[in-house]
Structures are given as structure tokens and as C-alpha cells.
């Protein structure tokens, strides 16, 4: 009976996206980088951009992403991906350029670069992975770390008196004129993954149409450094994190300001 079933289901409806190399990744079990990577690769394929894309890798867990994508990649110093991407896009305006950054990379050391890339309306796309911690370096407090969240550098829980407040990037960048698209999504339920993919598609489309700067903030899990099982980590995203970081589209420019 089993092999008969095999002949019956011959239409493959889900497979690895062409832009994603068939290799295992270094990411921890249940880490949402993997989902974000697949969404990114699927969107590159959707717009048939693989051969015209230059990716800019951050410093953080995703620094090794260039080993996973069949796309030209340059590695940026910590926090400087938006600046490197600016250099690439200005040199090659007809190429598709994106950065992929974690919250330590973008929201801490790279805040100046991301704000100014957005404010210049740099025609590039940023995928921003917010997992409220520095993953690669072992779970330190990040600007997005929640109040009360224990990390390796906030062992008593983040206290605003000492460490200030978690920073909401998607809303902040939405206030800048240069920003064409800014949204926050999550990937902790199948429905969220679908919406996340739609948002990434919209962001890509903005760049393709030359509408200016686009960013998608993706609430993600870091099971290892949160000290949680992957499924429980997703509950944290759905609960506490989504409360403080509301999902939604914070800016969506209708038509370009310039030709």
C-alpha cells in the first residue's frame, strides 16, 4: 500500500528554495534564523532575483549566512551592514541589495547606520531579526532585551533604572521620511510565517520599484540563550514579546517621491 501511495502523490508542493543552498546550518535547534533564511530565499526566488542580488551579512549568528545562500555576499563589520549596502547599491543601482541583521548589530552598534540609511531613503531592504539578545556571543543583553529579562549581562533581569528600555525599531524608522516600508512580523505560528512572507515580499517590491528604504523586523526565538525549549520560546514571542513589540505595518509608501 505504501509504495502505491508514493506513486499517487507525485506533485511536489514544497521544496527547498533555489537560492538556499542544500547544506545544514550552524543555527541551534528551533532557531528562527532558519525560518527567516527560508522566507528570504523564497522571496528572492519569487522575484527571480538570485542572479542580480548582493547580500550584506552582519556580525552575529547570521554572519555565516553567506554559506547558505547561492547569492553574491559581502560581510560587513558589526553594525555597518546598512552602510556597506549603501556602498553596493550606489555602485550598482540596478542590483537588488539587502542586509540581514540581528538586534545587537542593528539596534545597538549600528543604530546610526540604520537610521541614516533609512533617512536617506536608500533603495535597499533590511531584514531585522529581533530575538532580544546577542546570540552569537552567548546571550548578552541587547537594546531589545525585555524589562526583567535575565541575560548573561543582566543576570538580575533588565532594569530600566540601569539599562533603559527595549527599543522599538520598526516604529522608530517608520517616522523617517526616507522610509518607504517598515513592518514588524513574527514567525512563531504558521499564520505568522505566512504574513511574514507577505511583508518581506512587500519590502522587496518597494526596492524593485525604487520606492526607497524598506525594513521588516522579525520577532524571533533564541532557544539556547533564552534557556528554553524551541516550542516554549515561541510562546514567549506570542505572549510577552508581541505585547511590547506589536506586529503590523508601520509605514507603507503609496507612490515614490521621485522618479
Amino acid at each position: 500500500m505504501k509504495n502505491k501511495a508514493k506513486e499517487k502523490f507525485t506533485k511536489q508542493v514544497f521544496s527547498r528554495p533555489r537560492s538556499l543552498l542544500d547544506v545544514s546550518t550552524h543555527y541551534c535547534p528551533g532557531c528562527h534564523h532558519g525560518i527567516a533564511h527560508r522566507i528570504l530565499a523564497e522571496t528572492i526566488d519569487h522575484f527571480d532575483l538570485r542572479e542580480k542580488t548582493i547580500g550584506v551579512a552582519p556580525v552575529g549568528c547570521a554572519v555565516l549566512m553567506y554559506d547558505y545562500f547561492d547569492v553574491d555576499f559581502v560581510e560587513a563589520p558589526h553594525g555597518r551592514a546598512p552602510a556597506v549596502a549603501t556602498g553596493v547599491k550606489r555602485a550598482q543601482p540596478d542590483r537588488f541589495v539587502f542586509t540581514y541583521q540581528g538586534d545587537g548589530d542593528l539596534a545597538a552598534i549600528g543604530t546610526s547606520e540604520i537610521i541614516h540609511a533609512a533617512n536617506r531613503g536608500e533603495n535597499l531592504t533590511v531584514l531585522f531579526i529581533n530575538n532580544t539578545t546577542y546570540g552569537m556571543t552567548g546571550g548578552q543583553m541587547a537594546p531589545t532585551t525585555m524589562l526583567g529579562q535575565k541575560t548573561s549581562t543582566s543576570p538580575y533581569g533588565r532594569d530600566f533604572r540601569n539599562d533603559g528600555y527595549p527599543i522599538r525599531i520598526a516604529e522608530m524608522l517608520a517616522t523617517l521620511e526616507g522610509t518607504a516600508f517598515s513592518a514588524r512580523v513574527a514567525t512563531s505560528t504558521p499564520a505568522q510565517i505566512r504574513k511574514a512572507k507577505e511583508a518581506v515580499k512587500k519590502a522587496f517590491d518597494m526596492q524593485i520599484r525604487g520606492m526607497g528604504f524598506s525594513i521588516v523586523e522579525i520577532l524571533s526565538t533564541c532557544p539556547t540563550n533564552w534557556g528554553m525549549k524551541p516550542l516554549d520560546a515561541q510562546k514567549r514571542v506570542l505572549g510577552e514579546m508581541s505585547g511590547y513589540y506589536p506586529l503590523g505595518v508601520y509605514k507603507e509608501r503609496k507612490q515614490a517621491d521621485f522618479a
Binding site: K11, Q12, V13, L20, G34
Partner: peptide, 18 residues
Amino acid sequence: GCAVCAECCPDVCIQVWR
């Protein structure tokens, strides 16, 4: 064959046929 499992897999381990 809804492929939701594949959509949720961080390591793209699942292929789906219908």
C-alpha cells in the same frame, strides 16, 4: 499535504507532495 509542517521547519528538512 498542506505543507504547514514544512513552512515551520527552521532547517528545511521537510518536502511535501500531493
